[in-house]
Design a protein around this nucleic acid. Structure first.
Length: 463
RNA sequence: GCCAGGGUAGCUCAGUGGUAGUAGCACGUAUUUCAUAAGUACGCUGUCGGGAGUUCGAUUCUCCCCCCUGGCACCA
């Protein structure tokens, strides 16, 4: 039996997730469901990233304890995922006990390898961004994002990870393993970044400045920097479940550098195998605007599912989502796709055939179905969009077959005969839809088993 | 500024050295009535970003220019 271990990025808990994050989870979920269908021993991990200054600050502004704060956000995220039918096997939180322990062990392993050392970090610090800036990045001596705040000149003692040591090794590794970063375009970006030179990065913060973090195990004055700790979540679960290395890390392009550069170097340092593929997807924009809290255009996945159903949203995202390109989303487009592909397409096909079958009181013998070779080949290459496009061609073909046979003019034996031909085709379509639209696939399979009845529309048309 | 990828029908995009597409949506016409005013068939529209060059011939190759997007380290 094959093993398949897939992860998503874990979401930062300073605020609830939005549709940008949702694309990633749905994508990973459909791949996980696909591998379960293949019979692979599948592990699907998602979760939340809960330490760091932003979390601590957000909690303070609400006047509550950080743990209480991240508990709340984490629970809200989980609700969103449930609403989208995300079939994760574990929801990991970086505040989980096993993760804390594992992250500390990892840190020590990397240190024992000689890759962690103490140094001084000097820099221009913006409190709003909770980040250091180079002088050249400032606008009139102020932070470009928080011009009202004063830039602070800080010196802080940090532990550093010796990333520079891994530069040549990593470049060679990526060249020799073209499947390591997907798609190609992103791999080129990573390579050019590596060639620009890798600098050591800090992996700790002083506890007196930031207490909300995992303690550095051999220095009580420090906590582990969020990035270093967060990446390790994949390994925490992977080692426990004995499914490391991961087959796919699914993440957004904002995270590609951390996953494609820091993470492999960290793993190499601590003596672990590298994940097989880093799948980097692009972003949604909303009516031409970047999705962001400050623009006030954040949409929750639950806002969309209310109107378009869970599978409706899954379909739209998977078929037309930002897999290898940024994609602009509008309510208008969503409605058009819903009506054209789901109501008029899949839903109507099922409805018209079910009604005909009901007329002759048809019973069908159970049959087995299989994934189409084209679907398999597209999914092995992560192209959920092309897989769905292929399935929709089958839907159109089924509609055309119905029209050319005019079954509504047939009666008795002849009608039964035709239905026995067309219904398995629809069931085959439903079988292939399982990774993408699990509820709908199941409904169709149920409707066409045993005594067939016409029922409520799968996707009522929206005007 | 540097690097990468793009600019093709109203929209989203595919594509090729021989006056563009088997594409989907939208639109139009016909047709059908089993179905969610759904389906099917047929059709419409484009100076293929601008200019120059190579070529018998370029949307496709080369050069220049314009525009868009992304990356250019501690932004989960």
């Amino acid at each position: 039996m094959n093993k398949f271990y897939i992860t998503t990025a874990i979401d930062y808990t300073n605020d609830v997730i939005h549709i940008g994050h949702a694309y990633q989870k749905i994508l990973a979920d459909s791949l996980a469901r696909y591998h379960r269908l293949l019979g692979d021993q599948t592990h699907f991990l998602t979760g939340t990233d809960e330490y760091g200054q932003k979390n601590e600050k957000s909690a303070k502004s609400r006047g509550i304890d950080p743990q209480e704060f991240v508990d709340e956000i984490s629970a809200k995220d989980k609700k969103q995922w449930k609403n989208l039918n995300i079939s994760y096997d574990r929801f990991i939180r970086t505040t989980d006990k096993d993760h804390k322990k594992f992250a500390q062990e990892f840190y020590l392993k990397s240190k024992a390898a000689g890759d962690i050392y103490l140094n001084k970090y000097e820099g221009l610090y913006c409190e709003g961004c909770e980040a250091y800036y180079e002088k050249k990045d400032l606008v009139n001596g102020k932070c470009p994002f928080h011009p009202s705040k004063e830039i602070q000149h800080l010196t802080e003692e940090n532990y550093f990870f010796r990333l520079s040591k891994y530069q040549d090794w990593l470049e060679k590794y990526i060249l020799e393993h073209p499947e390591f970063v997907w798609p190609d375009k992103k791999r080129e970006e990573i390579l050019s970044f590596i060639r620009g030179g890798l600098k050591d990065f800090s992996v700790s913060r002083l506890k007196k400045n930031l207490s909300w973090g995992i303690p550095v195990p051999d220095d009580p004055n420090h906590v582990i920097y969020v990035w270093f700790d967060a990446l390790i979540n994949y390994l925490t679960y992977g080692v426990e479940e004995n499914c490391w290395p991961a087959d796919v890390h699914v993440l957004g392009k904002d995270n590609q550098r951390f996953h494609a550069i820091y993470w492999p170097a960290m793993l190499k340092s601590a003596g672990y195998q590298l994940p097989k593929t880093i799948l980097v997807h692009d972003f949604y924009s909303l009516g031409g605007q970047r999705i962001s809290k400050s623009l006030g255009n954040v949409i929750l996945p639950s806002d969309l599912t209310k109107k378009y159903t869970t599978d409706g949203v899954r379909y739209f995202f998977l078929r037309y989502g930002p897999l290898t390109n940024d994609v602009d989303i509008t309510w208008e487009k969503l409605k058009e796709v819903y009506n054209a592909d789901l109501a008029n397409g899949l839903g109507n096909l099922v409805a018209r055939v079910a009604k005909l079958a009901e007329k002759v009181d048809l019973h069908l013998e159970p049959r087995t179905y299989n994934l189409e070779p084209e679907v398999i080949s597209h999914l092995n290459g992560f192209r959920v969009d092309l897989a769905l496009e292929f399935i929709w061609q089958k839907i159109t073909a089924a509609d055309a077959l119905i029209d050319s046979n005019e079954p509504w003019k047939l009666e008795g034996e002849k009608l039964t005969e035709f239905l026995q031909k067309i219904i398995p085709q629809i069931c085959q379509i439903a079988y292939n839809l399982q990774p993408f639209l699990p509820e709908t696939a199941q409904k169709i399979q149920q409707q066409f088993s045993g005594k067939i009845k016409s029922g409520d529309p799968l996707f009522p048309r929206i005007s």
